[in-house]
Design a protein around this nucleic acid. Sequence first.
DNA 1: CTACACCTTCCCATCGTGGGAAGGTCAAGC
DNA 2: GCTTGACCTTCCCACGATGGGAAGGTGTAG
Lengths: 132, 132
Amino acid sequence: MNIGAAAGMTGVSAKMIRHYEAIGLLQPPARRDNDYRDYGDREIHELRFIGRARRLGFSIEEIRTLLALWRDGDRPSREVRRIALGHLEDLEARIIEMQAMAGALRRLVSDCHGDARPDCPILDDLGAGCRD
Amino acid sequence: MNIGAAAGMTGVSAKMIRHYEAIGLLQPPARRDNDYRDYGDREIHELRFIGRARRLGFSIEEIRTLLALWRDGDRPSREVRRIALGHLEDLEARIIEMQAMAGALRRLVSDCHGDARPDCPILDDLGAGCRD
DNA sequence: CTACACCTTCCCATCGTGGGAAGGTCAAGC
DNA sequence: GCTTGACCTTCCCACGATGGGAAGGTGTAG
């Protein structure tokens, strides 16, 4: 199976598949006579794993560890849970931070009449700069 | 006022002050005899504006536009509001996306017993990969 | 006079992703 | 057969925002 077909089946772009191979996240697949990469079921499965993990926001290094655990039939699930929990806490912290930004912005946007006149509470707030 | 003092007063690192100057976000300040950058009230005010806008998550290019509007006494507040609203909507979309990730992760983490045994719903989910 | 804290410019790294050039290969239609 | 278009290969470069650090100059305090 060509890299393009593998990309289509896994939702991971051909560019990224080559990149994951280059950084050692994926084993280099077999090559055909014409030097094309040849993907089988095992590689497709790993690519889907990576794609799903990326969609959950895991970093490449986290995925590297998760893949190793996945391949290891004797892993302690404690390890997997620890990584997932760490990432979850990271996500939640970032969500809270962004919600604070969004809340402040919502207030400013709703206070701004938004017409042809130049006076603007948004710029006033940014320019005040000391209320942080 | 030296760049270090300006950084201390505005919460923008010296590194980033030089960077903002290099990309044309800030006018190059006056230089003293020893070639040190010399910042006055106006520059400090602009740096605070930038710092506050960054803390609200605006991109450099958005800040470039906001700064131009800020400097223009005749700006229509409509323009400012449009940019802020666009950024707000972007933020909200990203928050929703991250909340979906966090929700899925929370479920997986709470389903994983997290001990020495190898069976793990988190890896099962990542490996299934087709329920996306 | 020496030590230390600051300044300057310049280059490189991060993280994940994509663009594109230059060249090789394959399959379908004429 | 030959052309055309869609693939594939490697390689380099870009983003956005930030930081690290080297190599060299300057200012100040003990």
